[in-house]
Structures are given as C-alpha cells and as structure tokens.
Amino acid sequence: MARSAATVEEPVRQRLLAEATRLFAERGFESTSVQEIVAAAGVTKGAMYHYFGSKDDLLHEIYGRVLRMQMERLTRFADAEGPIAERLHAAATDVVVTTVENLDDSKIFFRSMHQLSPETYKNVRAERRRYHERFRDLVIEGQRAGVFRDDIPAEMVVDFFFGSVHHLGTWYHPDGPLSGPEVGRHFADLLLSSLVPAGRPAP
C-alpha cells in the first residue's frame, strides 16, 4: 500500500528540526546558516522552504512544539475533575517534567529568542501568554474557592513560578541527583505551600 504524501514528507520536516536543534545548540542560532541546516538534513533549500519560511520559523517551531504539547496537557489537568489544589499540583509538576524532558529545545530558544524578527517574537510572546493565563486561571479558581490565599495577585504567583521553571536550563542536568519528576514535585510542593491561606496548615 502506498504511503500518503504527508507520511512520506514528515520525516523531512523532522530531520530539519532535529538538525537545526543540534546546530543551534552547537554553534548558536546566529552563526548557523540555512545551507548548513539543509546539508546536515540531506535536503535542498527548496525542501526546507516547503515547511519553513525562514530560519526564524525553525527556531519558533523548536520551542512551539514543546509549548503546544504543554498547553494540551495543562488543559487536561485544568478541565479534569477533582480538588483544585490537586489539579494545580499536577499541572505544576507536569510543566517542570516536560520542560526537563525537552530542555535542549527550551535552552536553545530562550538563548536565541531575542534574535527573532519582531513579528515572530510578538507571536511567541502571545503563545506563551496564553499558556501562562491558563495556568493563572487555576490559581484564581483556588483563590475564589478560598483554598488559596488571595492577598497575592495570581499574575504574580504565575510569574514567580515560571521564572523558576525557565531557570531550569541553567542548573538542571539529567545525570544529577534529582530526576525530572522529583524536581517537578518539589516545585509543585513549594508552589502549593506558598498559596496556603494564613492560619491554615500546609498540605
């Protein structure tokens, strides 16, 4: 049975992303040329431009595929049944685990995002903003239910938490003493402990 065109072409797209990720990590985004990417992937420039309009688009997609996956998972946690504290804890653990599992992609992006075109940079910020707002909504839900303290703006809670998550690339190593799930649980425990209302024992 003949494979569909999409099935045949998809490995080309994946090779381009894999080689771009490797080269950006080794040489930096600015120092890597389109020609080097297509040569490493074993394709033509025409094949690359079939999938990606520019080197910016490659960098955007390296991070975008991680962010889309995290957004899908966050939505499942947010929409699930169960106490809000459990859902927020699960969501917080998961974002750390998925960041650690895709640490190279995240490190490359955050190191190079300032070199994106203004329009692409604006789009990326909007995508990240939607993710952070979905996470923030969980905090607000808990605050309105009286489960979380409400004297700290939910926006600040999210900024503080994700500041720590985005810092993972500077210190986490897979061969270190803690696994990704262990770090995720610690981060989530710290987040939930910080949200306990005054006078109430920590969970």
Rank of each mutant, 00 (worst) to 15 (best):
K122H: 11
F109E: 04
G169E: 13
A18E: 15
H89K: 12
Q35H: 11
R149K: 11
E101V: 02
D159Q: 14
D137H: 04
E155L: 09
A85Q: 02
R68G: 11
Q14G: 08
G184R: 04
E81G: 03
D56S: 05
F29S: 03
R136S: 03
G163P: 04
L88R: 00
P11K: 07
R111G: 12
Y131C: 07
E30P: 01
L178P: 01
L178H: 11
V95N: 08
H166Q: 14
E26R: 15
V38E: 02
L103Y: 03
V96M: 05
L59K: 06
R27V: 02
D104H: 08
L168A: 11
Q35P: 01
V8T: 12
V139Q: 00
D189Y: 06
V12G: 05
T75R: 14
R68F: 12
M1P: 10
T93N: 10
R129Y: 13
R73G: 02
D137W: 01
E133V: 14
D94R: 06
Q35R: 14
E182P: 03
G199D: 06
A25L: 10
V158Q: 03
A154C: 10
E101K: 10
A198R: 09
Q14P: 08
H186Q: 13
R134Y: 04
M48C: 09
G82K: 01
A40M: 05
P201W: 02
H132V: 10
Y63S: 12
L195H: 02
